Computed example of a mutant assay.
Amino acid sequence: MSTQNISLSNASSNLAPKTSNNKNSAIGDTKPAEVEAKPTDVKTKFTEEEKVEFTKQAEATALANKKSLLDTMFGKNTKADSNAMRILAQETTIAIEDILKKELGDDSFSLQKLVDKTSGIKGQEDYWSSEKTSDRIITGATSYFETFKEKNASLSNEEVVDKYMNLITPALKKGMGEAVDILKGFNAFEGGVKETVETTQKLVFEKLEAFREKMLNIDKPQAEDKPLFEDTSAKPEVAGE
């Protein structure tokens, strides 16, 4: 029997009539209102040492959670490159959409349907390869050019191409830069992931330059019959269509 129980037993024996010699009978015969229990001491303040220890434990838990996430997304035996490509494509598409929404004056404008239809089928082994991912990024980035050209009919072909390049190039750099920052935040921008992302970035700007040359009609003649990449001439889809 604990010290607290002993205390309650002694207190109740003075309040209730004794009906037997059983030591526990006093507790059984006592009404709850007649028992004055001592308040339990609750610790509301921590020492500096305890605060430091609590902080260490919290940091250790956060680190463990982050490590678990990293192992899931970028660890060995997982599709680290695919996850990195998802982040790269997502951030770049968002950046391009933001620019085109402002240009269109349409907050509902979305490139996602167009991008999803181009360069591969989700689930295929190479869907998130550098080649196919860069195709989808460029498709999204260049899909609005013909509409943009119509809106700027007073400009020469060279002027409209330069103006469009000046519109989407910073958006591409911004989107891919933010994706890299995310990967660095996960400590995942290294090894194979870094190589895959950098290869994809290189392909994006090579294809962007090829698009620019084609729009300026200085593309190589032997390449004219072959599509530059998938759906480059497709107009953007607006939500609801």
Rank of each mutant, 00 (worst) to 15 (best):
K184N: 13
K184I: 03
G185M: 04
F186G: 02
N187I: 03
N187Y: 03
A188K: 02
F189V: 06
F189W: 10
G191R: 08
G191A: 03
G192C: 04
G192I: 08
G192M: 01
V193C: 02
V193L: 06
K194V: 01
K194Y: 06
K194M: 10
E195R: 11
V197A: 00
V197M: 02
E198I: 05
E198K: 11
T199R: 11
T200G: 03
Q201F: 06
Q201D: 12
K202V: 03
L203I: 09
V204M: 07
V204K: 02
F205G: 06
F205E: 07
F205P: 04
F205T: 10
E206F: 00
E206M: 06
E206Q: 09
K207N: 12
L208R: 10
E209H: 02
A210T: 09
A210Q: 13
F211A: 07
F211K: 09
R212H: 03
R212V: 06
E213K: 15
E213R: 14
E213C: 14
K214G: 12
K214C: 01
K214Y: 12
M215K: 12
M215N: 06
L216T: 06
L216Y: 10
L216Q: 10
N217K: 15
I218G: 10
I218D: 13
I218Y: 05
D219M: 14
P221Q: 10
A223H: 12
D225A: 15
D225H: 14
P227N: 07
L228N: 05
L228G: 00
L228A: 03
E230L: 11
D231A: 15
D231W: 09
T232G: 05
S233W: 06
S233C: 08
S233Y: 09
A234Y: 11
A234I: 00
A234S: 13
P236A: 08
P236Q: 02
E237M: 04
E237V: 13
E237K: 11
E237H: 05
V238A: 01
G240R: 04
